[in-house]
């Protein structure tokens, strides 16, 4: 898959994973594991990018007498999800066009 495309997909997946409630690294990976394969070392730079872009913020909380980092979506992050979906509509139209025009001229298929 195109790297840019995949990057956009993964970033939005991460935002969606923390949209409803704050989450932490291990939980994000677990929640996404059924949808998309993402390793710890892939997630790390994504979280960093989203943080520096202002799409999420990081806070630390004590958990079982150790510290755990939590990620909370920001207003900007919440706005990004529908924006991504709108862009994706466009991609879907293109995909549909490619599909219909590559199936032996069967434009209805």
């Amino acid at each position: 898959m195109d790297i840019q495309l995949k990057r956009g997909l993964l970033e939005t997946c991460v935002l969606a994973a923390i949209a409803d409630c704050d989450s932490y690294g291990y939980k994000i990976i677990k929640d996404l594991s059924g949808v998309v394969e993402i390793s710890e070392s892939t997630l790390y730079p994504i979280l960093k990018r989203l943080e520096s872009g202002g799409y999420l913020r990081v806070f630390t909380e004590e958990h079982n007498s150790r510290l755990r980092k939590y990620y909370a979506i920001t207003k900007q992050g919440l706005e990004r999800i529908p924006a991504f979906l709108a862009e994706w509509e466009e991609v879907a139209r293109v995909v549909n066009y490619i599909k219909t025009n590559s199936e032996g001229g069967d434009k209805n298929g």
Binding site: Y26, K27, R66, L67, K69
Partner: peptide, 16 residues
């Protein structure tokens, strides 16, 4: 930061 991120992941896995 990187090391503490992976340390946390390992701790969470153990807790799981």
């Amino acid at each position: 930061r990187t090391v503490s991120y992976f340390e946390e992941i390992i701790d969470d896995r153990i807790e799981d």
